[in-house]
Write a protein that binds this DNA or RNA. Sequence first.
DNA 1: CTGAAAGCGCTTACAG
DNA 2: CTGAAAGCGCTTACAG
Lengths: 341, 341
Amino acid sequence: MKGKATSIDIAHLAGVSQATVSRALRGSPLVNEETRRRIQAAVEQLNYKVDKNASNLRRMYSGTLALLLFEDPTADESHINPFFLSMLGSITRACAQQGYDLLISFQQFSRDWHADFADSKKADGIILLGYGDYLAYRDKLEKLVAQGTCFVRWGAVLPDQPGVSIGCDNFHGGYAIAEHLLERGCRRIAFLGDASSHYPEFFERYRGYVDALQQAGIMVDPDLQENAESTERSGYEAMYTLITRGVGFDAVFAASDLIAIGALRALSVHGLRVPQDVALAGFDDIAMASFVNPPLTTVLQDTRQAGEVLVDSLLKLIRAEPVESAILPAKLIVRRSSLRG
Amino acid sequence: MKGKATSIDIAHLAGVSQATVSRALRGSPLVNEETRRRIQAAVEQLNYKVDKNASNLRRMYSGTLALLLFEDPTADESHINPFFLSMLGSITRACAQQGYDLLISFQQFSRDWHADFADSKKADGIILLGYGDYLAYRDKLEKLVAQGTCFVRWGAVLPDQPGVSIGCDNFHGGYAIAEHLLERGCRRIAFLGDASSHYPEFFERYRGYVDALQQAGIMVDPDLQENAESTERSGYEAMYTLITRGVGFDAVFAASDLIAIGALRALSVHGLRVPQDVALAGFDDIAMASFVNPPLTTVLQDTRQAGEVLVDSLLKLIRAEPVESAILPAKLIVRRSSLRG
DNA sequence: CTGAAAGCGCTTACAG
DNA sequence: CTGAAAGCGCTTACAG
């Protein structure tokens, strides 16, 4: 008995054919209870496990999903956006619940990643997660669709997108933040984050913000918007730029918590107090948001629900069931950073 | 051309045998350059990818590592310890760099997880990560060793442990914290965290702390130690217990940052200021540590290096090369939470 | 440098 | 309910 046991070893030991072993192990009803018991005993005795490679090859199925996490190559290699880390955790759990394994891969946004996993049969489907230039991204999505690869992506849900997207309600999240800041008496609300179709999630948040201002009869001042990607450093720099520009503002809506945390540092460096001098809000509700000082008002994206919906949708796709893109609710979380006065 | 292309399709298209296609794709030197080019062209034309299941079955190798992350079932399901999340990120990167895929699985600590992945040939080796009762854990490690499964674990490095362990220098980390607090004039230093052989990582930190106190000629007061597991809630409760116990203390060394953050909240609830009334330090240097108020003095565990060493060691094990357990350096990070006076 | 052939360990019609 | 047999898509001695 050298090397791992195979189903043939089990067959010998249990005194049946190898085919019967396979049937018993796959739970076929066509197996006598007594036979099944003998096989089970042999399996335990030899500590046998079905070889997944052989099984998958034969069944043309892998029982595995792949998660591709992209990052902009500019991002600091050693720190992953905590929001995605949290998504990763919930996706892992959701997969485990459904009996699927999860293969994880980090991808440079620029690389030619489309569907390595699915094409090489290592995964039955792919979950796409990450920020990056959507317009560059779109091509790859179309290629995936053309290849018939099963995939779902986390991101903005817009009309005419290739494939299935799941995202949170960025528009209403942005709206809720702006509305809240307006209610607190803010009138000059800056927006920190890219606001173009290259970054549709941020753009939706921006559109919500614009909409709330307009509802309140307030002019949107383009000088109050400053591009930033979702890192603390970029948030710091954007805030710094805005401060030195010398435009007046009484509130800052950062398109992500990481940006907000960077902005908080820049404000503090310049002697501006939050929330007394400037109200501040972020987006995502990462764990850190409640620990910074002051605790950060933000919008909760429910990563647990998101993970479940992503996995469920992907499994439906794999089973060729109909699947729609879906927008998940966003929830305003008010903390001290926005409570002026 | 229905379904995915196979190597036979490529062979037809390139006018060679299937065996030659396989050789060309595996980079065998035994293939004519011109032939290789023709095959490459066919591969691209049909968007062919080697079927990993077939390839792995034949080669008896998977090109995949598995990461098992356990958690105590008591831990809040929706939040994973950020330290492990960070490790996960760095392990993923290290795997990618070595050309391996990473399969991830969360495990209840209590379950019978030993080596499912390796036994079913889905992974060539396993990385074990997580907290939990070491004494319960040990049995399973021994089983793994007995089965000949390749694995490395993150944790305390002690004599006579089954298998290969990689861990940070918990003893000297704990020593450094205590020494630092003593230098700041603290004399009554509480320790928050389990201090028994059930949790050897915490225990090593505790031993470092005890050693530093003894070096300084200070009695170790058992009333100043309170058990806690690595969660914010547990830290809060332990701190609360200690405060209501009414023993005097001028510093708190929490066995992890999460515990420290919980303790910080409890101290604040009781009107004790950090660092003016009580100096506070944690362990791990999770991202949050620098964002709490005041920023937390702690010990940095270099997760990037840890991930690399774990993956390198595991790959060596798989290649049957000699591997030793290793202790990685810990580094004191002084921030405001410990700076009294 | 290339091809024909065996075989990795399963699963599943097919025949009984 | 069970067995004999084909075959999933590769890789790799073996022979040339």
